[in-house]
Nucleic acid binder design. Structure first.
Length: 509
RNA sequence: GGCCCGUUCGUCUAGGGGUCAGGACGUUGCCCUUUCACGGCAGAGACACGGGUUCAAUUCCCGUACGGGCUACCA
């Protein structure tokens, strides 16, 4: 079978959707698994939908995810250019070649004329009008017009399109790697436009020409392309390229959390979750989005989550690094049915990855949250804090909420819980305890714990009278890591100052 | 409407003619713990329906239902 070459071919019409990321991921994994090449090609043949910045976004998003193309836009390669708008001449040449060979024809019907025709048919009760092997006989095209008339129109510069001449009465069958044999009746297929009035190719033409020229071995794309694959096969045939036609694998779609339709960009706002890898500044607030990155996701978690939306290794392992995914991936293990976007699962993955992060790595990821607040702790301190906090975070962005007291004084105390535990006798006890803590030699968590527990035992006290109040004194609330671990990290000075301040506050309540 | 694809716990899924239908998320309970979290244990929870084929179907075939996709000079 020659070299494995796969391409991810998004169109730059806006930020890359998470479904697109998964398509890229599966292409990437397949390429890596097979020792092949992962190619990035930009399908910008619709000048009307081109969005500035989208291309950079795509590249940045792939990079964030770790899905680096081995060839293509931004990387270069043997088959440049990889931006379809720069390949216009190529498509034109092939389209005309197809007209010559009889596989395609010129058509002069304007979009407006077609619209009117469709409306007229609809009025008659026929909602299925299409430009096909029957209706083309009554349209204005190279098959109905005399040759001289066609030449005249072309020479007059009249706008035209090139349409695929779909043959009659044939059955086209592909063997989809995920779904098995899928057949299409050519009589059901319309004469797709290949070359548009503006001289640009449609997806159908461009993708076949490029896949052929770029020696693509496998086309792994979303299921929304399955219905037009019959046309694609016909095109390979018309060009005489069927012998080297790539194999197809149509991926199941990612569905909305409620299962009603495929996930779309608006679902982010609707369900309160990200549907794009990175944030995007659109022209309006409705067109601006926070991405997984801004929500506080780790790219490794997003990748792991996405990989399992429609694929699984057949084992019970759930956590996979990108490298492990590359090893384990097979197209055979991709499911057929659409998968709902399970945001709870995504959160769980993120939490798992945060917990497994090295303190050092986590500290670096979390540091940017501190600067705007005016804090720049030294690395060692921040790492220790991360060590205590990481099992309490689901998102990177939880860091501040969950551990702000490691950087600034307690602003809000849990008065209810203080009132429940603080008695008139508490003050002398806590003052004595404070002295014990302050005098601790090493100020290591374990040592403080010993002395505090000794103090409690000697005084005939109960842990419940002491620990919770100590905790509230330090953090303001009933939540957080172990009290002594926190003291150890905060250090003698801060710990003592907070306890002293808290005793006054508690007593004044 | 037409064409194409699909259907195992609420969700993601494993499995495959004879299984106690397995795992994970979520959920419930318990344990751990000074608290929250983590972790551990336990529980509830699924083969869409109807016909075949077969000694035996969740698994194979056919229908039905339901869901999804496509149906542009968009990709």
């Amino acid at each position: 079978m020659g070299n494995i070459r796969v391409r991810f071919a998004p169109s730059p019409t806006g930020p890359l959707h998470i479904g697109g990321v998964r398509t890229a991921l599966y292409n990437y994994l397949f390429a890596k698994k097979m020792g092949g090449t992962f190619i990035l090609r930009i399908e910008d043949t619709d000048q009307g939908r081109y969005v500035p910045g989208a291309e950079d976004y795509i590249i940045e998003a792939l990079q964030w995810c770790g899905l680096t193309p081995g060839e293509g836009l931004g990387v270069g390669g043997e088959y440049e250019p990889y931006r379809q708008s720069e390949r216009k001449d190529i498509y034109q040449k092939y389209a005309l070649e197809l007209v010559e060979s009889g596989g395609a024809y010129y058509a002069f019907d304007t979009s407006q004329a077609l619209e009117e025709r469709r409306a007229a048919e609809a009025a008659k009760g026929n909602h299925n009008f299409r430009y096909d092997n029957v209706s083309r006989r009554e349209m204005k095209n190279g098959l109905t017009l005399p040759a001289s008339e066609v030449t005249r129109r072309l020479e007059a510069g009249e706008e035209y399109v090139v349409r695929l001449k779909v043959p009659n009465d044939e059955t086209v069958t592909i063997n989809d790697l995920i779904r098995g044999p899928v057949s299409f009746q050519t009589n059901e297929l319309d004469d797709k436009v290949l070359l548009k009035g503006d001289g640009m190719p449609t997806y159908h033409l461009a993708n076949i020409v490029d896949d052929h020229l770029m020696r693509i071995s496998h086309v792994i794309r979303g299921e929304e392309w399955l219905p037009s694959t019959g046309h694609h096969v016909l095109l390979y045939r018309a060009f005489g390229w069927e012998g080297t036609m790539p194999q197809f694998a149509h991926l199941p779609l990612i569905l909305k959390p409620d299962g009603k339709g495929k996930l779309s960009k608006r679902d982010g706002a609707k369900f309160g979750m990200p549907v794009f890898p990175l944030g995007w500044e659109g022209e309006t607030p409705e067109d601006s989005f926070r991405g997984f990155r801004e929500y506080g996701f780790l790219p490794e978690a997003v990748i792991n989550f996405l990989a399992f939306l429609g694929w699984n290794p057949g084992t019970e392992q759930e956590i996979f690094s990108l490298e492990e995914l590359c090893q384990a991936f097979t197209i055979e293990n991709i499911g057929k049915a659409g998968a709902r976007f399970d945001y709870d699962k995504a959160k769980w993955y993120n939490q798992q990855y945060i917990q497994r992060s090295e303190n050092e790595a986590l500290a670096a990821l979390v540091r940017p949250q501190l600067a705007p607040k005016g804090y720049a702790p030294d690395a060692g301190y921040l790492e220790k804090v991360c060590g205590l906090l990481k099992e309490r975070m689901t998102f990177l962005t939880d860091f501040w909420a969950v551990g702000c007291y490691f950087f600034e004084e307690v602003k809000q105390f849990d008065d209810q819980n203080i009132a429940k535990r603080w008695t008139p006798e508490s003050r002398p006890v806590f003052e004595a305890l404070l002295a014990v803590i302050e005098k601790n030699k090493s100020f290591a968590a374990a040592d403080i714990e010993v002395s505090v527990k000794d103090f409690i035992a000697e005084g005939g006290l109960k842990i419940g009278q002491i620990f919770p109040l100590l905790r509230i004194a330090l953090t303001g609330s009933m939540q957080g890591p172990g009290v002594f671990e926190m003291m150890g990290v905060l250090g003698r000075e801060k710990t003592v100052a907070r306890l002293r301040k808290a005793i006054d506050y508690f007593d004044a309540l």
